[in-house]
Design a protein around this nucleic acid. Structure first.
Length: 336
DNA sequence: CCTCTTGCTAGTATGATCTC
DNA sequence: GAGATCATACTAGCAAGAGG
């Protein structure tokens, strides 16, 4: 079975409307398509009271749902809400293509939504179609309702996301990270099982976590910079205390001076012996006399003052700066 | 023992070069 | 110019090892 097939099985929770079982009660069988659709949605029956309590706009929408055209109903765009973490990745170029397509053509696949207790609908699938409709100035979009729990909708979107070959490894890492945050007890092996991929791959995705913050910044703006293999290798090198070399290598990679494999080699290369390192010397002067000479060689900074008293006073200030920086480094890395 | 990491390698995608 | 071939870069999975 291919990964795609495995993933399709995993995302079956977000089933097309035709696969939602009909209720046993056929007494009040609706005649219209949307009416039949509503009758097939037990979750909507449960929401009836909430819907009644909703605003006049929502009541009107409910009316529309009951009388709308077959194949879904037109819902005002301002009644659709996005749930974080559920949006699928789409490259900008593809989104523009989609938007222009929708500008000229009819929407073929309706947006899939779930009713919200507080009114309106949350988007299960169709974020980009909704965005495109908003951008081209439409007020409504054709929607179908789906009976899934919030977790099924979010997990389904995440695992379906993994199917997309154009999702970068860094973005997959963010997805797995979010999944782990939602389920702190879930293991990498379990996530791999759900996703239908090898646990070693999940391990490599998770290794992005250990890259230096400068590299994460680069990845935020250029997610395709690093694959999971090179990313994990660089994370290991970072763990070995060679973060600055990793940052330097990834910068070269971003400039396309080297490829991923070379970046790993460059970052892993042992730096030259200390004896051959030429220290950078800076002299801070007061008038014409040298107040302090600062020598920097690799990870060593040496300060030499004219007087012992000055050295003692300045060392207290340096200590405060270092403690502040250390505290900053101890803070957990920012999420995306 | 379970979970995670890592070395190795076959497979795949992509681009460059060659041949017609 | 189009198709064939080759080289390179990268992915993904297996298997073994490390660590708690």
């Amino acid at each position: 079975m291919s990964i795609k097939e495995k993933m399709a099985a995993k995302t079956a929770a977000i089933a097309p409307l035709s696969r939602v079982p009909r209720p046993a009660d056929a007494n009040a069988e609706p005649k219209t398509g949307p009416g039949k659709f509503l009758a097939a949605m037990p979750i909507l029956a449960e929401k009836d009271r909430e819907l009644e309590a909703m605003s006049a706009e929502n009541a009107e929408l409910r009316e529309k749902l009951a009388t709308g055209a077959r194949g879904g109903v037109d819902i005002p765009l301002d009644q659709l809400f996005e749930v974080p973490g559920r949006r699928r990745y789409m490259p900008k170029a593809k989104y523009f293509e989609l938007r222009e397509n929708l500008r000229k053509n009819k929407l073929i696949h309706p947006v899939v939504v779930r009713p919200r207790a507080e009114g309106g609908f949350e988007i299960v699938s169709g974020h980009h179609r909704t965005d495109a409709y908003r951008e081209i100035g439409r007020e409504h979009i054709r929607c179908v309702l789906e009976e899934v729990t919030e977790e099924e909708a979010t997990s389904g979107a995440f695992y379906a996301n993994l199917l997309q070959s154009d999702l970068t490894d860094y973005e997959k890492h963010l997805g797995f990270k979010r999944m782990q945050e939602r389920h702190p007890d879930i293991t990498q092996a379990e996530m791999a099982e759900h996703a239908g991929v090898d646990p070693s791959l999940v391990s490599r995705f998770m290794a992005f976590n250990e890259l230096p913050s400068e590299v994460i910044d680069l990845l935020s703006s250029q997610p395709d910079l690093l694959g999971a293999t090179a990313g994990a290798a660089l994370a290991t090198i970072t763990r070995d205390g060679r973060g600055p070399q990793v940052v330097e290598a990834v910068r070269k990679l971003a400039l396309k001076e080297i490829d991923e494999r070379q970046a790993v080699k460059v970052a892993a290369a042992k730096s030259a012996p200390a004896s051959t390192a030429t220290p950078a010397i800076n002299k801070i002067k007061v008038g014409r006399s040298v107040y302090c000479e600062m020598r920097t060689a690799k990870n060593v900074v040496r300060l030499q003052f004219q007087s012992d008293e000055e050295a003692i006073e300045v060392s207290a200030a340096i200590k405060a700066v270092l403690e502040s920086r250390a505290a900053g480094r101890a803070k957990p890395q920012q999420d995306d």
